[in-house]
Nucleic acid binder design. Structure first.
Length: 577
DNA sequence: GCCGTTTTCGGCCCGACTGTTTTCAGTCG
């Protein structure tokens, strides 16, 4: 897995370097496409021969050769040569908003600028004056861009993005003349983070909407405004783009602005082959320019010979081919989730009591709900066997009371075990087998070497009492990277032993990430989408977990906590048998 | 560099906005 990501990063770097040095732009694009395909490929490229490499879409003889060279030697001569021509700092310059590869090269060749800091200094010394392509406005914009880059905390988490988007949409929807309004972009595709937000509105006259948008209380600055597109930045630094389209362009526009860019490129290629032209303004006959009526997204896809594709799948990861074959998965819906298998109470590090959490679970309409407080190895939680057994008694009482109501919520008593560096867990098997469900997770020693980390996970997966591996990569947004392990080996073991992998729904975790879900799914693994709630409001995080699961092509059948309780219980019992 | 029910050569998605280049290139999405 690491090799797929490494190779993808290397191909992307080469694509960037090619676009800076100029020459054939299509060549750079070919490397970009190959980078994406390798990054999302379901098999580990380090195990593939040249023929199998060339079977990856966008990988031909030349790129397959470079991948082989990298896997054999750890280097690629062509990339090394490009790195010698273009220092890494020049590539970093293109991260500055409004500065692309062409002008980054001018700065490097004419002024010797090869880092963001050097650019800031050069602007301060007015050395850009008279440089071709750089006028007085450029200095100002670049300085502003450098400030943003330095202040940038990267992408914003999905919960923040969704709250902002829903607020903006609600306010714009009330503007007179606004016929439709929604958010599109990566947020509609349910990515775990958002770079900027895309809001789409339909109106005959964009004026009132544009005025309302630039006057929103959240606006920090107006970046640009025109007849169809207006961009603002909030006081918190989040860019929001509003597009206003005529009502009869809604279907094509919503499709276009939902993306992804890669998905849309593929759709336009299909349109071109059908002698059509697709843009955000509609679908047209290429020759006559005559408009084809496409009122909805469904109409757009149908006219291209495809069924409607759910937004979380629109990443050019094979969804267009699957749609053409009529083999699109029916994505998991949040409402398919009948219960939660990983939650905490104030007995350990949760905020709310058992009773409050159970009440909230009932209000969510769940059929079953597992309480899985931490086990003793997380020392700060002060857990003991006695405390756990006392909780179990209370859970049994609540369950008995609930059971007397028809269709009442059923409770499971579980625990979240700690996977020690050697792969062992907190309690002996005799005690573990008395739990309904055991989640096991890594909470420390994140930097073990890859082979040790892999053995650690495998030991936990092979444990007959471990049902779910919690937040498998342990990544935390902006704080901690994923641990390094041989995921394919772990996923194969999960499939073999009937161990579920968690899709942890907390917005800062979203773990497994969608790329690894896709990969695990290929091994035939089952999943549990869990909130890992430490408070009542946390239970609602399930929507983000469902979104990531959709992006991983999971169906309800793949996710054990969509199953009826009896089927779930037999899955849990089968592990130890 | 990749790719093929029009093609093994000649294409490769499309449009808006900005600033500066007096007619368009660069950047972005």
């Amino acid at each position: 897995m690491a090799s797929n990501e490494e190779v993808a990063a290397l191909l992307q770097e080469y694509a960037d370097l090619l676009s800076i040095t100029g020459g054939d732009a299509f060549k750079a694009r070919a490397y970009e496409r190959a980078a994406r395909a390798v990054g999302g490929h379901s098999a580990d490229v380090s195990g593939l021969d040249a023929k199998a490499l060339k079977a990856i879409p966008g990988v031909g003889a030349s790129i397959a050769g470079k991948i082989g060279e990298y896997l054999r030697t750890g280097r690629v001569a062509a990339v090394d040569e490009a790195r010698e021509r273009i220092p890494a700092g020049v590539r970093e310059l293109t991260a500055i908003p409004a500065l692309g590869p062409k002008r980054a090269l001018v700065l490097y060749e004419e002024l010797g600028v090869s880092s963001v800091d050097e650019l800031a200094a050069a602007i301060g010394e007015h050395r850009l004056r008279g440089l071709k392509g750089f006028g007085p406005k450029s200095e100002e914009k670049l300085l502003h861009g450098i400030d943003l880059l330095r202040a940038a905390t990267g992408r914003i988490p999905v919960d923040t993005a969704l709250a902002l988007a829903e607020d903006v949409v609600a306010r714009l929807a009330e503007v007179p003349g606004c016929e439709r309004c929604t958010y599109a972009g990566s947020l509609r595709r349910r990515r775990g983070t958002a770079g900027d937000l895309d809001v789409l509105a339909a109106a005959a006259d964009s004026g009132p909407l544009t005025a309302a948008f630039t006057g929103l209380p959240v606006v920090g600055e107006v970046i640009g405004t025109g007849g169809t597109k207006t961009s603002i930045r909030t006081a918190d630094g989040v860019q929001v783009d509003l597009r206003v389209v005529p009502p009869d362009a809604w279907g094509a526009a919503l499709q276009y602005f939902t993306g992804s860019k890669e998905h849309n490129i593929r759709l336009r290629e299909i349109a071109v082959r059908k002698k059509l032209k697709l843009s955000e303004y509609g679908l047209f006959h290429a020759r006559s320019g005559r408009r084809i009526r496409v009122a909805t997204e469904e109409d757009v896809y149908a006219r291209l010979g495809l069924p409607w594709i759910p937004p979380p799948l629109r990443e050019d990861r094979g969804e267009i081919e699957a749609a053409a074959r009529g083999e699109l998965p029916e994505p998991l819906a949040e409402s398919d989730l009948r219960g939660d298998l990983h939650t905490h109470t104030d007995l350990t590090d949760g905020i709310d009591s058992l009773e409050a959490m159970v009440d909230a679970a009932r209000r969510r309409g769940y059929s079953y709900y597992a309480i899985t407080d931490h086990a003793p190895e997380l020392r700060m939680q002060r857990m003991t066997k006695e405390r756990m057994l006392a909780q179990r008694e209370r859970v049994a009482e609540l369950d008995a009371r609930s059971r007397r109501r028809s269709g009442g919520l059923r409770l499971l008593h579980g625990t979240e075990l700690n996977i020690a560096p050697d792969g062992s867990v907190d309690w002996p098997g005799e005690f573990l087998e008395t739990f309904d469900v055991c989640v096991a997770s890594v909470h420390s020693h994140f930097t073990q070497p890859r082979d040790e980390m892999t053995r650690r996970f495998l030991a936990a997966v092979e444990n007959p009492h471990v049902h779910v591996i919690g937040h498998p990569t342990t990544r935390k947004a902006g704080r901690r990277p994923a641990v390094d392990a041989d995921w394919d080996e772990i996923f194969a073991a999960c499939a073999r032993t009937g161990t579920a992998l968690e899709v942890n729904a907390h917005p800062n975790r979203l773990d497994l990430p969608d790329e690894l879900i896709l990969r695990a799914r290929g091994h035939g693994v089952k999943f549990a989408v869990d909130s890992d709630a430490h408070s009542v409001p946390d239970l609602a995080n399930m929507r983000y977990g469902a979104g990531i699961a959709q992006r991983g092509w999971l169906t309800a059948e793949d996710v054990v906590n969509t199953w009826p309780l009896a089927r779930l219980r037999s899955f849990l019992r089968a592990k130890a048998a």
